[in-house]
Design a protein around this nucleic acid. Structure first.
Length: 183
DNA sequence: CCCTGATTCGC
DNA sequence: GCGAATCAGG
């Protein structure tokens, strides 16, 4: 199949809309993603260069690097936030992992806040503990940017079973529940 | 290993 | 002009 005017038009539109080369190749049919990319170049389209977004580091390593105490959290806030983000953004799926990680840090607070209001509870005071101060009974819910100097953990008293205090445990549990319902 | 786009080069 | 092969990256 060659590049008829119609096909070229479709290519232009889909590419402009942000579809990936392979996705466009599928829709058009009869062409490979390479063909699509090649054509895009010849048409001098493109533009879609994100200046190689630098994902940087995520919180996960920090939490995982904690003492034995923090070894196996049932569900980290990061995970919960990721799930919330996913359900609220059915669009960005393919770029997945990396893109989401970036958003997590940025939105974890924006996502958590609303949930907090829904729970009808007041956000508890935090003891602002650093990583080394965590024990078996301190809430390990991270607060702030892991890379920022003021990063700390909630530190409130947590039950025997959970790694979080009552408030944050509720946050995590509720978020997951909603995720399953929406699924 | 999956994917992304970018580039090359024989056709 | 075309696109497979290849490259560079996530």
């Amino acid at each position: 199949m060659g590049w008829t005017d119609e096909r070229v038009e479709m290519l232009r539109q889909l590419w402009t809309e942000g579809h990936s080369a392979s996705q466009i190749a599928d829709k058009l049919g009869g062409v490979s993603r390479n063909a699509v990319i090649g054509k895009v170049h010849r048409l001098k389209l493109e533009s879609r260069m994100k200046t190689e977004a630098k994902p940087a580091i995520v919180a996960e390593p920090v939490v995982a690097a904690a003492p034995r105490v923090v070894a196996q959290p049932v569900a980290t806030p990061q995970v919960v936030a990721a799930q919330v983000v996913q359900t609220s953004r059915p669009v960005a799926r393919t770029m997945g992992a990396t893109a989401l990680k970036v958003e997590i840090q940025h939105e974890i607070e924006e996502e958590a806040a609303p949930v907090a209001r829904q729970s009808g509870e007041v956000v508890p005071m935090t003891r602002k503990l650093s990583l080394v101060q965590l024990t078996e009974r301190t809430c390990k819910w991270p607060i702030g940017d892991p890379l920022a100097p003021d990063f700390h953990f909630c530190g409130d008293h947590s039950g025997d079973g959970t790694p979080y205090c009552a408030f944050h445990a509720k946050l995590a549990f509720q978020a997951v529940t909603e995720r399953r319902r929406a699924r």
